[in-house]
Simulated assay, not measured.
Amino acid sequence: MVAHVVVIGAGVYGAAVAASLTRRGARVTVVDAGAPGGGTSGATFSWTNSCGKQPRSYHDFNVTGMEAHRRLAADVPHSDWYHETGNLEWAATDADRDELSRKVAAVLDYGYEARWLSRAEALDLEPDLDPAALPDDGIAYFPREGWVEPTRLIGHLLSTAVAAGAEVVRDDAVTDLEVAAGAVRAVRLASGRRLPVDAVVDCAGPQAARIAELAGLALPMRNTRGVLVYTSPVAVAVARVVHAPHVHLRPDGGGRLLLHTPEVDDAARVSDTGEISVDPSAVDEVVEASRALYPGIGAAPVESVRVGERPIPSDGLPVLGRVVELPNFHFAVSHSGATLSLHAGDLVAAEALGEDRGDALAPFRFERAATVR
């Protein structure tokens, strides 16, 4: 009998799990309360990296995730969602410079590619940067890092899964999980539809704890919000991820830039009706910091502002794979989903179909997370 797996969530994790499941011959239904890529995956900086991530097992896991992106981009003709153009980072204060030095030393010790650049070398890479915004030296460069365009990646993965027989159900939230005799037996949707299952994979991102609760599981999370500012097309050549002291930015296609800084994440407000808004002065702060960095941005208007909710398990590490007390229920939940989704999603899919992925997933089990409060 072909196993029927319901994947809850159609972001980068759900799409990656679905594509891997169908490649292994499973019958797959992907369900989402909204549109594919319409949640966190559609409002993320999507920086692919393993820069400063600890402990070592998590660093190595992210490096393998980066390698999975390279393989997929190389294997798919005309793939256009993966951009491995590097990341520049520098600091403004002595304390932050010391921290950056420690981070570079640590990743070099792990064999991760990094080097120090002078101002002139950085300008060779990013000639439209204002030289006055750069220090004389001490600019860290991580050449194997980059970013993904999540919705394009999701589109490829889901189309691959659908071509192999998967069904994608959108705008239909999961309302209940039927659990009996130590297993999930069916998934119920808001539309009234009932989906009998052999296995369930919780890829619901910020809503992962709610889905887990329907199965009688307590998943501790500490989600945070991130404010992302998207410019209109600008006549500025930006090719890389740039982490400057007061703004982080990267290209976002069509000449647009994506801007972010943790300094204004707290500017997001949720009304009594659930509407999310951002203080306009916070948006102006991010834009002004980017103009100081790239003067050519000029008076280009903001095209949109999005607020993403980052799904972060309590100790910051991923929660992946099967649950001991409910062995046909599986998690694929983490921060850094843009980096990890292909690799982690493949491991989780394999385990959902009975393959042994114990060694690879051991540091990221639910049982470890469930003890954290």
Rank of each mutant, 00 (worst) to 15 (best):
V2F: 02
T22I: 09
R24I: 15
V31F: 07
G37Q: 11
T44M: 06
F45A: 13
S46I: 08
N49L: 06
V63Y: 06
G65Q: 11
G65Y: 12
R70N: 10
W81I: 04
G86S: 09
N87S: 12
T93P: 00
D94M: 02
A95T: 09
S101A: 15
K103C: 15
G111N: 03
P127H: 01
D128R: 02
A133S: 13
L134P: 07
G138K: 02
Y141A: 08
P143M: 01
P143C: 02
G146M: 11
W147I: 04
V148G: 01
I154Y: 05
T160K: 04
A161W: 11
G165K: 09
E167W: 00
D171M: 08
L177N: 03
A180T: 03
V184M: 03
S191I: 08
S191W: 00
G192C: 01
D202K: 14
A208M: 06
A208E: 03
I211F: 10
E213A: 14
L214N: 08
A215P: 13
A215K: 02
G216E: 00
L217Q: 07
L219C: 12
R225W: 13
G226P: 10
G226R: 08
V229K: 13
V229D: 05
T231F: 08
P233E: 02
V242Y: 13
V242R: 12
L249P: 03
G253I: 00
G253H: 09
E263G: 11
R269W: 03
S271C: 10
D272Y: 08
T273G: 12
A282V: 00
V283G: 05
E285I: 04
V287L: 15
A289S: 15
A292Y: 13
G298C: 06
A300D: 00
V305S: 09
E309F: 02
R310G: 01
P313H: 10
S314N: 09
P318T: 08
V319W: 01
R322S: 14
E325P: 00
E325Q: 15
L326I: 09
P327K: 10
N328M: 06
N328Q: 09
F329P: 12
H330M: 07
A332N: 09
A332E: 11
A338N: 04
L340P: 05
L342H: 04
L342A: 03
G345K: 05
V348F: 08
V348H: 12
A350F: 14
E351P: 07
A360D: 14
F364R: 06
F366W: 15
V372I: 14
